[in-house]
């Protein structure tokens, strides 16, 4: 495996109960790039994203087979008690923001405290640093003690980004991170991603084709639980090989 690949998914099959949701997925996700996962609703994009950091573990009905190598280590073989280390390597942004039921400040320090960092001075610095990274600091610096739920949806999403960055991940997993946001907030997140890919590997699910065209370096197109086509953005958008990809890019599935 070359060192340009951050995540290598091999023969991944996933069942929920008796239903097969992901079928023989093989995907390579390049380092320090934005990889966009495209596909019509219900094709398994969210499920694929969740299996990348073993969130599938908490659903007793889900069964996963195959391997997912991150930096060469198969995370599906990692023991249950070490899963938290895997998860800390990845920050997660979900479709809608889910702030933890606590203050803005504590949302950021939550992950740090869990890993045993408790010194007040250190925490204060981190909070400021990551809120600045997520371009939220100026809006909230005077009300860090307020409940996070008091923020607007767009601010909450940036808070979730800051919270995810605060555990110092290597990968950002984002599931339609802008779908609940207004155009201005969406653009802010997009710009942030382009800036962040210098230091992180970003995997983003999106429905918005235009957004994908704007920021994708690498594209994975899924259809009914299968990966139909993948490659660099120029290849997939400029010269798609599969019929289904062409149809999707024409907007036939929407």
């Amino acid at each position: 495996m070359d060192n340009q690949t951050k995540i290598h998914i091999k023969n991944l099959n996933l069942h929920i109960g008796k239903q097969q949701i992901l079928k023989d997925i093989n995907v390579q996700i390049p380092k320090n790039k934005i990889t966009v996962i495209l596909g019509p609703s219900g094709c398994g994009k969210t499920t694929l994203l969740k299996s990348l950091n073993r969130l599938t573990d908490i659903y007793p009905d889900i069964k996963v087979e195959g391997s997912i190598e991150i930096d060469g280590q198969d995370i599906l073989k990692v023991k249950k008690r070490d899963v938290t280390d895997i998860r800390k390597k990845m920050g997660l942004l979900s479709q809608r923001p889910y702030p933890l039921p606590m203050s803005i400040y504590k949302n950021i320090t939550y992950g740090l405290k869990i890993s045993g960092r408790r010194r007040k001075r250190f925490l204060n610095k981190r909070v400021e640093h990551y809120l600045k990274q997520a371009s939220l600091w100026d809006e909230v610096k005077d009300r860090l003690k307020d409940p996070a739920s008091a923020l607007s949806i767009g601010q909450q999403q940036r808070l979730c980004l800051a919270r995810g960055l605060a555990v110092d991940p290597e990968i950002i997993l984002a599931d339609e991170p802008t779908s609940a946001l207004d155009p201005v907030s969406s653009q802010a997140i997009e710009e942030k991603f382009v800036e962040l890919k210098e230091r992180y590997t970003i995997v983003m699910v999106t429905h918005v084709l235009r957004q994908a065209r704007r920021i994708a370096d690498h594209v994975v197109f899924m259809y009914l639980g299968e990966v139909v086509e993948q490659g660099s953005a120029e290849e997939v958008f400029g010269n798609p090989k599969e019929e289904r990809t062409k149809a999707y890019l024409r907007g036939a599935f929407n």
């Binding site: 969740k50 950091n53 969130l55 908490i58 938290t84 280390d85 998860r87 800390k88 990845m90 920050g91 997660l92 979900s94 479709q95 809608r96 889910y98 933890l100 039921p101 939550y110 992950g111 869990i114 890993s115 979730c160 919270r163 995810g164 555990v167 997993l173």
Partner: peptide
């Protein structure tokens, strides 16, 4: 998703 958010932060 709230559970997932917390788990993804390493809890």
């Amino acid at each position: 998703q709230l559970t997932e958010a917390s788990l993804s932060l390493g809890a």
